[in-house]
Write a protein that binds this DNA or RNA. Structure first.
Length: 545
DNA sequence: AACACTAGCAACCGCGTAGTA
DNA sequence: GTACTACGCGGTTGCTAGTGT
């Protein structure tokens, strides 16, 4: 299916041009330029390429509108620039993306969103258009397959970056919701990961549907439709287009050590910052019926859903509409709903929350709405619930976190299959993120409607969850060969400083040892199921120190 | 073999933004 | 302040090649 891209455009274009004189048309660049002639559109011919190359050799890049003037090329400057940038400039790498590149793209996209040019800058020899096409194709493919867009580890890392950003913003003393850093870095990221452990997307819910998917590119979909997905980075758009200002890079590279939150094991269970504006991009589906935040808080206008998915016609969104973009939600809301102890003044009584969860209004409470806030709230609730009444009150957790089918399968198994190319997908968080992603899988082959009802866990259910999340200890993650490879690759691209840190972060084990990256992400964003586990973190991940 | 369908890619288009004269 | 230029990006279109019937 895949066409060879190597040097194909020219030849193909020649034939095309030879047969299609209609390619000469009014160009978007003005069509007729200064009476010189009609600007040509359509595929480039080898002759045109040669002319352009010659021009660039002589005059260098830039001033593309002068190309037509100086070279006689009947192409608009824009077209020339694109042609040069995408096909003619030296050191362009042709051919299919390598697995390492694919992985890197995925990682970058998780961090940067649709910043194709920025990604291209980190992928030597690749163009933004190429990356975009690859991504869009991939999205479509995975969408069809009902797969999540991102592998668990990438999701988690992105989330962790968000945490870092949050930490940074908080430590910087600024208004976390209004400072530029956040505007730039903290894109609305869906959260509430533990919801996705719902049984209704039980393990392997769609795994059988994807046997033949191109494994190396198989992560996705989670994140919904292509449009939804593509729209998500609109948050990036709104984050203002700074020209390689690197404003976003900290988010992605996440390696500004000054910003790195220290990983305090003592903090692990404290659930202190469960609500974070998750960092760069976590594209996901924000279909209309998923806009309902827990407890009836429907956050509309979120930057995360700029694509119109917040349909006014959506009855669910009528509950409570916060018209502010998510990052502009009043602090009071945030404080009351998202922050954990110390003593949040306004969190609804646990009982009421429980009541709500257990007897939600007549609306969808699929827990598949991911606001930047509900995660924190839920985590808090869960945490409190767990702390308060570890043995008696399982209802809350069971409402939020449900086990799969009880047969011991976990969603990770799916990813194990999906992510074979990238080593062991059974990251400690694979369980959650996979579920999270699957939650937003409209085309998963299993509709939400078909999902089994959320079931309350029997006593000890949390342990069951824990058992189901019986992922290997983190030392098993050493199998993340490809991940390491891509990290190495990134290191090579970005220099040792970044590379080393990124690699450390990228490496689950090193992340754990360093106390961030996977480590901090792993726990702070740990699905409730994991957090509710009786096991201390060390018992989950294994001794990290 | 012929046809229809589909995936992937190159290129275009329109809009917005940044830099500069 | 304005115009111009270049760039970035999302969306779209059209073509080619592969695949299925």
């Amino acid at each position: 299916m895949s066409r060879t891209r190597t040097n194909d455009s020219g030849d193909r274009m020649v034939s095309k041009d030879q047969t299609d004189s209609s390619s000469i048309d009014e160009g978007s660049c003005g069509g007729v330029l200064g009476g010189v002639g009609v600007l040509k559109k359509g595929p480039w011919t080898s002759a045109e390429d040669a002319m352009l190359v010659e021009y660039v050799k002589e005059h260098g890049e830039g001033n593309w509108n002068a190309v037509q003037k100086h070279s006689g090329l009947l192409r608009c400057g824009k077209s020339c620039r694109l042609r040069w940038a995408n096909h003619l400039r030296p050191n362009l790498k042709k051919g299919a993306f390598t697995p390492a590149e694919e992985r890197l793209i995925i990682e970058l996209h998780a961090k940067l969103g649709n910043k194709w040019a920025r990604m291209a800058a980190l992928l030597p020899g690749r163009t933004d258009n190429e990356i975009k096409n690859y991504w869009n194709t991939r999205v479509k493919r995975l969408q069809r397959a009902g797969l999540p867009l991102y592998p668990p580890d990438v999701c988690l890392q992105a989330l962790n970056d968000g945490q870092q950003n949050q930490d940074y913003s908080e430590s910087s003393g600024g208004d976390a919701l209004h400072n530029d850093v956040l505007d730039t870095n903290n894109y609305d990221i869906p959260e509430v990961f533990f919801d996705n452990l719902e049984a209704n997307h039980g393990p392997l819910s769609y795994a059988p549907a994807l046997p033949n998917i191109y494994v190396s590119s198989m992560r996705t979909q989670a994140l919904g439709s292509l449009k939804n997905f593509n729209s998500l980075p609109t948050t990036v758009k709104q984050a203002k287009r700074t020209r390689e200002s690197d404003a976003l890079l900290p988010g992605f590279l996440g390696c500004d050590t000054d910003r790195l939150p220290s990983f305090d094991p003592a903090q692990i269970g404290s659930c202190k910052k469960v609500c974070r504006p998750f960092g760069p991009l976590f594209p996901y589906d924000a279909s209309p019926n998923e806009n309902l935040a827990p407890f009836g808080v429907s956050i509309t206008g979120s930057n995360a859903f700029p694509n119109g998915n917040f349909s006014a016609s959506d009855p669910l969104s009528k509950v409570v509409k916060l018209e502010l973009p998510s990052l502009q939600v009043p602090n009071t809301v945030i404080n009351s709903w998202c922050t954990c102890p110390p003593a949040p003044p306004s969190p609804p009584p646990l009982e009421s929350i429980n009541a709500y969860i257990q007897s939600p209004p007549a609306m969808q409470v699929q827990s598949d709405y991911y606001s930047p806030w509900n995660s924190g709230l839920l985590q808090e609730v869960i945490h409190e619930s767990h702390a308060k009444n570890r043995t008696s009150d399982k209802s809350l957790s069971s409402s939020v976190v449900t086990t799969a089918d009880g047969n011991g399968h976990s969603t990770m198994e799916l990813y194990e299959a999906e992510w074979g190319d990238f080593g062991d997908p059974r990251s400690p968080l694979g369980c959650s993120t996979a579920s999270v992603l699957s939650e937003h899988t409209p085309i998963s082959g299993i509709s939400l409607d078909e999902s089994p009802p959320v079931k309350a866990l029997p006593d000890g259910g949390d342990k069951e969850i824990s058992a189901q999340l019986d992922f290997p200890r983190h030392d098993a993650l050493l199998e993340f060969d490809c991940f390491e490879q891509s990290s190495d690759y990134l290191a090579a691209l970005l220099g040792e400083d970044f590379g080393s840190e990124y690699k450390h972060v990228a490496s689950p084990t090193s992340a754990l040892s360093q106390g961030w990256g996977f480590g901090s992400c792993a726990w702070n964003n740990m699905p409730a199921a994991c957090q509710m586990s009786e096991l201390p973190p060390d018992d989950i991940y294994g001794a990290s120190e």
